[in-house]
Amino acid sequence: MLSVPDITSQKGKRPLVCLTAYTTPVARLVDKYCDIVLVGDSVGMVLHGLPSTLGVTLEMMILHGKAVRRGLERALMVVDMPFGSYEASPEQAFLNAARLMAETGCSAVKLEGGVKMAETIAYLTERGIPVMGHVGLMPQAFNTLGGYAVQGRGADAGRVLADSRAITEAGAFAVVLEKIPQSLAKRITAEIAAPTIGIGASADCDGQILVIDDMLGLFSSFKPKFVKRYAELAETAEVAIGTYTEEVIKRLFPGPDHVFEDAPASGGNGAPA
């Protein structure tokens, strides 16, 4: 299985391939392709129908983390720390991160925040917990950021750059850059020592990540600009469900290949007649 040093050694080399996973079957599918598999708090919106990530609990992350761990043999597994599980103090963050690692078997945790979270990241890494950082658009902070707008434009670029530098210096082994201008992503990637993982950033990052349900087209109504659809599985599924419905109503399913006959009669010695 890949380790944190394996990931950091790719800085400036082959781009890192990263996807989210929330279940064992999906983890098995992505394992041979991905360097990092993230059990993201996006699970709240993707699988649980929540309006944002704010309602995700530590217990939910542990449940899905355990499921993903059972499906991985190669990729580095990272689990998101949910909103409210790390912001109060470095000590709170350590207790919850240690629980995540112990109960899920993950190799690292991810948390959002820049300069303000540097102390917490240093506290965790000094105690043996690898941390992936996340700056730019931070979904857990969408209320204070004013929604899901692009971050780091104009004078705001300095803030995102400072956040990236601070968490790298604090010990983050990789930094997710979300929804920032291409020029800023390129500058941050060139200036910080940690690999950058882009989502709505640019191909200049050291790697890329997408929510797997987005890139597979499982949500026909959700099409953010930074997502490329590599399949349209929602359309395929709808056709399949419609065909199934029609065949059930017309009594075409189940057919002869899907039913069982009575057991054949047996001879006196117990063998089939």
Rank of each mutant, 00 (worst) to 15 (best):
L145V: 01
M132S: 07
F222P: 01
V109N: 12
F173T: 06
L124K: 10
Q140M: 03
V26W: 01
I209N: 00
L252Q: 15
C205T: 03
L184P: 01
L50M: 13
S202N: 06
T24H: 06
E246M: 07
A231C: 07
P5I: 00
G84H: 08
T120F: 04
G128R: 09
D204Q: 12
G49K: 09
E235M: 02
M60S: 00
L218Q: 15
G105F: 12
Y33D: 11
A21Q: 05
A193W: 11
V176S: 08
H258E: 15
A162H: 13
I199M: 08
K11A: 00
I192E: 02
L19C: 04
A108Q: 03
R127T: 03
E238M: 11
V248K: 13
Y123D: 09
I167F: 10
D6Y: 04
A98M: 09
K110N: 02
A263T: 07
K250G: 12
L218C: 15
E191Q: 14
M215L: 15
P264G: 08
A240L: 09
S3I: 01
E235K: 10
L252I: 01
D35E: 07
M1S: 12
C205M: 06
I209W: 02
P264S: 14
R99D: 04
M138H: 11
G49N: 02
G207L: 01
V4H: 05
G154M: 11
R159N: 10
R14D: 07
I212R: 07
T20W: 03
T57R: 05
S3M: 02
A170M: 06
N143Y: 15
S107N: 08
G200I: 00
H258M: 15
L100R: 14
G65V: 04
K11C: 03
Y244A: 09
M215H: 12
P51F: 10
L210S: 11
V17C: 13
A102E: 10
M1V: 03
S266G: 12
A149W: 14
V135Y: 14
T104D: 01
Y33E: 07
S220C: 09
E73V: 14
L124N: 10
M81Q: 10
A240Y: 07
S183K: 08
R229E: 10
I212Y: 08
L50C: 05
I249Y: 13
E91V: 06
C34R: 04
Q208E: 11
A122D: 14
V4N: 06
A102W: 00
I129Y: 14
C34Y: 13
K110W: 01
D206N: 05
T23S: 12
G146W: 05
T8W: 00
M117Y: 04
H48I: 01
L50Y: 15
D206A: 03
G267C: 06
V78Q: 11
A162D: 06
E59H: 04
P130H: 09
T144W: 08
G84A: 02
V211S: 12
F83G: 00
E112A: 04
L95H: 14
L95G: 10
S220G: 15
K223S: 14
L184Y: 02
